[in-house]
Structure formats: structure tokens, C-alpha cells
């Protein structure tokens, strides 16, 4: 059962203009996102820059003012009281950022960085707190003495692991991970991804994994949503999305990923060209007259796609 429901979430930014600087229009950064999150699962949110994927993450974290829609956490609407001091929601939903370096306060020791959520949400004695921090460091594979060091003494991968340690410090239920490995080298990325999977098992965590990298998303996620212009164009299990993409935008994204298959590079290229051609010719029927993405419609139990008529997609 899902413990977190996102219903018709909207974030609109006003555009000001005219003589009196009044609101003349809105940017529809998020325009009606629905999601439901179950325990222990990983949800991928994929899109290109400007698609609204990071805004979604921030809105869920309460870092972005919600224009409309509801966030229902364990049956209660929390969208109004988000960022309230004592809400369990704030404790149970944590975030990992893309840029580990700037998300760790350079003037604080690792101990204080990791302890921050604990001090915010729990009352522990100094001894208990220290014990918890040592546990956390152990979980993320860092030595004990890391506790007394400053962020700049660590490499990029290690900093990201500290970010994860901070995020799991209060045993959250959901971690919103916004491009957590995009800034990392391949071998370091592998390390962080493995270890995110490990703690997921250990804590029964759920992830909302925001990324532009379809390879990483496929590796990590059970369920994937594709975003475009503030709306979801397609949503489904990993198999639904990769084996049977329906929306032209999903097809384009998948076709554009470079593949490590040197023999079939021409085939791959031809396929990409074909999808691009289809996109050019039929682009209009995939969006309504205002260029807006249609509402999601169910294709199967798990697979939803934003098409005008569900038959249009075919295979």
C-alpha cells in the first residue's frame, strides 16, 4: 500500500509585466502531477532540463510553494503544514542533492552535519547521538574518525555518502534523490548507487530518484515516470517503459541514449532517425492544441500514458 500520495500537484510561477508590474501569466513548472509511493520501492522521475523534475522533488520536500494539489501522507493531507517544525512528514521525507559539496556546510564538522536532522527531530543524549552517528558512518562505509573532519577533506563520492548518512539519520521512509550521481565519475557513481540499494534494503526505504540518465534510472528503479513540460507523459514499471514505450517523447529519450553496442551502431542510429522522423511528423497529435501534454490514461494496471486516444500509440 502506498504511504504517500501526490494528487494533482501544481507549482505555477507568476510572470510579471505590464506597466504596473502585475501578474500577466504563469510558468507552469508543475501542472498536475499524480504519484503514489509505496514502501521499499524506487520511483524514477526522468526528464530533460526544464521538464520540472527537480521542482517536483522540491515541492514534495516543501522547498517550493505549492500552487494547488495535495500531498497525502499516511492518510493525512500535509500540503498545508509542510515545513512545520514538528511534523513527522518532515522527518520521514529527506533529500539528497546533486552537488554534495555545496549541500554540506563547509564550516561544520561531519559529526554536526549528520547530527542536524537528529537534533531537529529527536531528543538524544550526547552519548546516544554519538552512537547513532557512528552507526551511520559505518553504514555508509566511512571510518570513525571521519566524524571530526570537515567536508573538504573528503572526495566527491565520500561527500555524497555523507549526504546519504545525513538523509537517513532519522530513519526516514522516503528519500528524494535529485540527480545524486550526476556529478560523479563512473566508478564512484557505481559505489554510491550500490550503497543506496544496500541501505534501501536495510531500512525498507523508498526513493524518488530524479535523474536525466536513463541508464542509471533503469538500474535503480522499479517504477519510472517520464516528465515533459511540467507534466507526466508516461508512467509504468521498468519493463513498461523500456520494452513498450508508448509516448513519442519516451521513445525519443530512449532512442537517444548512447548504447554500448559497437556492432549495431548503425542500426541504433537508424532507429533514432526513425523515431525523430516520427516525432517531427506526428508531434502535434501527442499534445493538445496548446502544446500541453494530455492527461495520463491507463493502458494496463501499471502502465499509464498521456495520449489523446489510447489506441493512437499502438506498437
Amino acid at each position: 500500500m502506498s504511504f504517500l500520495e501526490i494528487e494533482d500537484l501544481k507549482v505555477h510561477y507568476p510572470i510579471r509585466g505590464g506597466f504596473f508590474n502585475t501578474v500577466v501569466d504563469h510558468v507552469y513548472a508543475l501542472d498536475g502531477i499524480n504519484m503514489s509511493i509505496e514502501r521499499g520501492k524506487t520511483y524514477g522521475l526522468v526528464g530533460e532540463s526544464g521538464s520540472g523534475k527537480s521542482t517536483t522533488g522540491k515541492a514534495i520536500m516543501g522547498l517550493e510553494k505549492i500552487t494547488d494539489g495535495r500531498i497525502i501522507y499516511e492518510g493525512k493531507d500535509v500540503s498545508k503544514q509542510i515545513r512545520g517544525k514538528n511534523s513527522t512528514y518532515n522527518r520521514d521525507v529527506q533529500m539528497i542533492f546533486q552537488d554534495a559539496t555545496s549541500s554540506l556546510n563547509p564550516k561544520k564538522r561531519v559529526r554536526d552535519i549528520i547530527a542536524e536532522p537528529i537534533r531537529n527531530f529527536e531528543r538524544l543524549t550526547e552519548g546516544e547521538e554519538k552512537k547513532r552517528i557512528l552507526e551511520l558512518l559505518d553504514i555508509v562505509g566511512m571510518p570513525e574518525d571521519a566524524m571530526y573532519k570537515y567536508p573538504h577533506e573528503f572526495s566527491g563520492g565520500q561527500k555524497q555518502r555523507l549526504g546519504v548518512a545525513r538523509a537517513v539519520a532519522c530513519r526516514p521512509k522516503l528519500i528524494v534523490a535529485d540527480e545524486p550521481v550526476s556529478a560523479l565519475d563512473l566508478s564512484v557513481q557505481a559505489q554510491v548507487l550500490n550503497f543506496m540499494k544496500d541501505i534501501q534494503e536495510e531500512y525498507g526505504l523508498s526513493y524518488l530518484f530524479i535523474s536525466h540518465d536513463l541508464g542509471v534510472v533503469k538500474h535503480m528503479c522499479d517504477h519510472i515516470s517520464i516528465m515533459y513540460r511540467g507534466r507526466l507523459v508516461e508512467s509504468g514499471t521498468r519493463e513498461d517503459i523500456y520494452k513498450d514505450p508508448q509516448h513519442i517523447y519516451t521513445k525519443r529519450l530512449i532512442a537517444a541514449i548512447p548504447e554500448i553496442d559497437t556492432e549495431n551502431r548503425e542500426v541504433h542510429k537508424a532507429n533514432r532517425r526513425r523515431v525523430e522522423e516520427e516525432y517531427r511528423q506526428n508531434e502535434k497529435q501527442y499534445y493538445d492544441e496548446n502544446g500541453k501534454v494530455y492527461d495520463l490514461k491507463s493502458l494496463t494496471d501499471t502502465h499509464k500514458v498521456a495520449l489523446k486516444n489510447i489506441e493512437v500509440g499502438g506498437n
Binding site: 563512473l186 566508478s187 557513481q189 557505481a190 550500490n194 541508464g215 533503469k218 538500474h219 548504447e259
Partner: peptide
Amino acid sequence: SIPQMDSENDELHV
């Protein structure tokens, strides 16, 4: 260590 299409749930090499 590349998370590729077919390596799905396996641990990545570190």
C-alpha cells in the same frame, strides 16, 4: 561499473 540496460538488479562493479 556502467549501469546498463541489461545489468538490471546486479550490483555494479566498484
